[in-house]
Amino acid sequence: MGAQGMGLTWKEEHLDFVLVPSGLLIMLGYHLFHLHRCINIPETTVIGYENHNRRAWVARILQLEAKERSQAITVIGSNLSAATSLASISLALSSLIGAWIGSAYHNNYITSRIYGNTSATILYLKYIALLSCFIVAFACFVQTARCFVHANFLISTPSCEMPVRNVESAVISGTNFWIAGLRSLYFATNLLLWIFGPIPMFVCSVITVLLLHYLDKNTTPLPPYNAPLSYEDSKKIHREMKASPGTTEHHEESQDHRDGT
Rank of each mutant, 00 (worst) to 15 (best):
R146I: 12
L35S: 12
V164N: 01
P163I: 01
L35T: 12
E232C: 13
A137Y: 00
I101L: 14
N107L: 11
E65Y: 05
S169D: 12
L96N: 13
T45Y: 06
L125P: 02
E13G: 08
G7W: 11
Q63P: 04
E43S: 13
G48F: 02
V203F: 15
Q71I: 08
T248W: 02
H213I: 06
T45K: 02
S90W: 04
S85G: 07
N218A: 02
V171C: 04
E43H: 11
D16V: 00
R37V: 03
S95L: 15
R60I: 06
R258A: 09
M162N: 07
N218W: 01
G174S: 07
I73Y: 10
W10Q: 00
V203W: 13
S159L: 08
G29M: 02
A82L: 08
H250I: 01
F17N: 14
A59T: 00
I73R: 14
D16W: 01
I172D: 10
I114D: 07
M162F: 04
F202W: 15
I207G: 05
P228W: 14
K235W: 05
T248E: 06
G77L: 01
S81L: 09
G2F: 06
S94F: 10
I26E: 05
R183T: 08
R146T: 10
V18Q: 02
V136G: 05
C204P: 03
H31L: 12
Y30M: 11
S95N: 10
F17T: 12
N107T: 12
M1I: 05
F196G: 13
A99L: 14
T247I: 00
E240K: 00
R113C: 08
I179Y: 09
T111K: 15
W10A: 01
L215R: 15
I199K: 06
I172T: 12
Q255P: 01
N166K: 13
S205C: 08
V20N: 02
Y186W: 11
A66S: 15
F148V: 08
P200A: 07
N117G: 06
K217D: 05
G260Y: 07
R54W: 13
R69A: 03
E50P: 02
A56G: 14
P221C: 11
F33R: 12
S119H: 11
L210C: 14
Y105H: 04
L93R: 05
L182A: 09
H251G: 03
G29E: 04
A92T: 15
K236R: 11
E232N: 14
H34Y: 07
N218D: 06
G29K: 00
G5W: 11
L25E: 06
S169T: 14
V58Q: 08
M27D: 09
D216L: 06
L192S: 15
